[in-house]
Design a protein around this nucleic acid. Sequence first.
DNA 1: TTGTAGGCGTTATCAT
DNA 2: ATGATAACGCCTACAA
Lengths: 341, 341
Amino acid sequence: MKSTIKDVADRSGVSIATVSRVINGASVVSEKSRKKVLEAIKELDFKPNQVARNLVMQKNTTIGIIVPGMGNQYYGGILNGIEEESSKLGYDVMLCTSGGESQNEIRHLEMFEERHVAGIIVMAQRLKPETVQKINDLKTPVIMMNRSTSGLKCPTVSIDNFRAAYEITNYLIEKGHRKIALFRNSMDIDACGVEQYSGFERALAEHGLSIDRSLVKYGEFRTEKSYELMAELIRKKNVPTAVIATSDIMAVGACNALVDNGYKVPEDVSVVGFNDIQLAGLYRPSLTVIHQPLKAMGAEAVRMIVNVNKNENERTMPYDGRTVILSHSLIERQSSAEAKK
Amino acid sequence: MKSTIKDVADRSGVSIATVSRVINGASVVSEKSRKKVLEAIKELDFKPNQVARNLVMQKNTTIGIIVPGMGNQYYGGILNGIEEESSKLGYDVMLCTSGGESQNEIRHLEMFEERHVAGIIVMAQRLKPETVQKINDLKTPVIMMNRSTSGLKCPTVSIDNFRAAYEITNYLIEKGHRKIALFRNSMDIDACGVEQYSGFERALAEHGLSIDRSLVKYGEFRTEKSYELMAELIRKKNVPTAVIATSDIMAVGACNALVDNGYKVPEDVSVVGFNDIQLAGLYRPSLTVIHQPLKAMGAEAVRMIVNVNKNENERTMPYDGRTVILSHSLIERQSSAEAKK
DNA sequence: TTGTAGGCGTTATCAT
DNA sequence: ATGATAACGCCTACAA
């Protein structure tokens, strides 16, 4: 059986209060007692029970995370940042996957609340109304990663999706591209996707171009879907000179469809991605992308939760409804080139 | 403030014992009381405090996971399996990253023990003696994923690495390859790597071939390192006709080095991988690989822990020191072909 | 069927 | 400096 603070007290001939004091380094304990206690702790291999500690302290140093799935390196990158920062701040992380189902998201949200976690970081591809509702009702602080919608009343950490899309569109236009396809993620009312679309539109407009509806598609965050979209454009002989995919795995899907059909990237078609997951650098041709500081985003979310917990005497949620924007960058690699004349 | 069982009792005019009974569905409660209690629970939006529950029940439905990092899809695949199975069995998952440092592994191992988790699943690239020691000393059940060494006294779930290496080597030999390189992971005494090496050796031997030392390299699980190894072979004009990499990301590293230096895969050199992470299918040429059932492996590890907890009345660890072997398969894709004449 | 009370392992507030 | 002792929120004999 695991030993308790009481065992230590008995063995060292002091009270449990004293033992507790030496464990927590609080107040003053005589050198003699401290030594005896420390000795007993060693001998019994005593480890304080965190469960009991959390109960009495009325707080928890666990952060709950909800993520669609672990296979996606996009989330992997953010999770690394979350984990690292948590660890640094003495917090730890409880992880749940939703599979993208709001039913699971809600279940996990409730579970986290029952466990009295310090806060919850939510990642999702699509924002379902039920989930938004649940998040708004929750008593536990929630941070949403890189996604938002008008009804959502919780802070968000994100990049400036408008500018990012604007910049990469501009980049392609300056390379001489005029027929540019946009492979978007989902067609839900997701602020992030809307902003990207606006940025795309603005860049085109500033060069006297307008959006070609037949080249704006929804890839649902999936490589296969994106592959199919590209294959269809090829079949319909409506091949653009450049493709902007709002996630790297969709960019890869588009590339594969092109390559498998005899096109060359970037000689025939330029393809650019969003996010800059590891795959973007490993794929050949390596992908020109908008780089998101995934680790930093994860770390920032953790810091926000920790801050809320510190100021919990005040009832205010410091970041309420606010968005923290981290800076992105454009990384030019092999998958983009001047447009063919 | 969050409401407690006592609030519910007061509001519904019964004792906390009765409330507890309806919450847990145990023993019998009069329909009248049950209704009143349920009502009060709704009104107060009461959620039982899991921390308190865990303390009094002396058990925890949390499984601790230690993983080197989240960016690697290999671990991502296993984690998906772990998460899914845990969720199905009513457990949840606490995740820590080690960054491959034994110091962190030990810290997390201790933390999990203090939190009284049901069990711990450990993933690591290299087995350090300190970590092995710590695992052996732990009172909490530990399962190691796809890695082992002679001193380690905990169950393992894995594939048959000997057979896997044997089969893929055979596959290449039958395609006419005679000059085959092996890019291994680390050079530690890891049972898994040793078995792979034996399988490789055996297949060669059965065809009257022997190992060419100059073609056996250590890629340290890293794409860049593998890239370098391949680049070096090219520089030394010691290019094999086929490369077996014991992880997919190393296979990609080798492919990239070849492609970047004007070689064609698989026309000039065949490259095969191990694990079959998502990248293997997305990369072009898509990778011929040994497929590991990552999800199933994760799920199996979870089941082992849950089983241990069920039989905890008996002091026996059902799987003590045993290894559970799951079946792999050889998936032929684009990166391998007949050897050039 | 229901309520009382003891205990899970800590922390923290009192006295002493 | 130290030791009782009351919480923390819940479960569960044991009584009633």
